[in-house]
C-alpha cells in the first residue's frame, strides 16, 4: 500500500534538505483542523507521522508486542491531548519524545519481569507485506532483494548508537533533526556529524562484505 509507489513521491522533490520540511509545515494547520473536528486532517497527521513513531519504537529494540502497544499508547495519548498541544507545528517532536519515554519505561519494566519474546528481529519479514512479497518473489527482483537483505543485516549489526540513530532517520517521510533530537534525546547539532559517521561505517561494512 504505502510502500512501493508511495514513499519516493513524497520526498523526491526535496532530496537533501533534511527534514521533510514540505510535509511538516502543514502539521500545525492539520492539528488545528483536527481539534475542530476534521477527521480527514487527523488521518493525514497519522499517515504523515505514524512512520516516525514506528521508527522511534523500532529504534528502541522492543519485542513486537511491546512495540505495538507503545505505538498505540502514543497515539491514544496524542488524541487525548489534541486540543492542548501548545505548539501544534512541533507535533512530530511531541510524538517522538512521547514514544521515547514509553520505550524507556518498557526497558525499566523488563528489568523486573522476564522477557518471553526475542527482541532480535534480524531476519523478520513484515507480516502484512503482501504487496512486497509478490515483488520479492519475482525472478528479476531476487538479486535486489538479496541486496536489501544484506543491507538490512549490516545495518542491524551496527553499533547500538548508530543503529538507533539511523532507524529514526530512515522514517518515511524523513524526520526533521528536531524530531530526531526529541526521539533520542541528543542535541540537534550532533545529529549531522553522527549521521555521517554512521552511514560511512555502514558503507565500510558493506564494502568489506563486497556488497557495494
Amino acid at each position: 500500500m504505502r510502500i512501493g509507489i508511495g514513499p519516493s513521491a513524497a520526498y523526491d522533490d526535496v532530496p537533501y534538505t533534511r527534514g521533510g520540511t514540505v510535509e511538516r509545515s502543514e502539521v500545525g494547520a492539520l492539528v488545528r483542523s483536527a481539534v475542530d473536528g476534521d477527521a480527514a486532517a487527523w488521518k493525514a497527521i497519522v499517515e504523515g507521522l505514524g512512520p516516525l513513531v514506528w521508527s522511534v519504537v523500532r529504534a528502541h529494540r522492543l519485542s513486537d508486542a511491546d512495540a505495538h502497544e507503545v505505538y498505540q499508547t502514543v497515539w491514544f495519548r496524542f488524541a487525548q491531548h489534541l486540543g492542548r498541544i501548545r505548539e501544534p507545528e512541533k507535533t512530530g517532536s511531541w510524538l517522538a519524545s512521547t514514544a521515547r519515554h514509553e520505550c524507556l519505561k518498557v526497558h525499566r519494566n523488563a528489568r523486573r519481569l522476564m522477557l518471553t519474546d526475542d527482541p532480535q528481529l534480524l531476519d523478520r519479514v513484515s507480516e502484512d507485506g503482501a504487496p512486497e512479497q509478490s515483488l520479492l518473489e519475482a525472478e528479476e527482483a531476487a538479486a535486489q532483494s538479496e541486496r536489501v537483505r544484506r543491507l538490512w543485516q549490516e545495518f542491524e549489526e551496527l553499533g547500538e548508537r548508530c543503529r538507533q540513530l539511523l532507524r529514526v532517520l530512515i522514517a518515511s517521510p524523513p524526520p526533521s533533526y528536531q524530531e530526531v533530537s526529541a526521539a533520542l534525546d541528543i542535541a540537534v547539532g550532533s545529529i549531522g556529524p553522527l549521521r555521517q559517521r554512521c552511514l560511512r561505517r555502514l558503507r565500510a561494512r558493506l564494502e568489506a562484505r563486497g556488497s557495494m
Binding site: 514506528w54 513484515s126 502484512d128 507485506g129 536489501v148 538490512w152 545495518f155 532507524r167 530512515i170
Partner: peptide, 17 residues
Amino acid sequence: ELRQAAGVLDPLPSALL
C-alpha cells in the same frame, strides 16, 4: 536505500496505522 529497505523489511504494520 536504507529507508527503502526499512519500508520492505520493517514497515509500519497497516493494522497499527
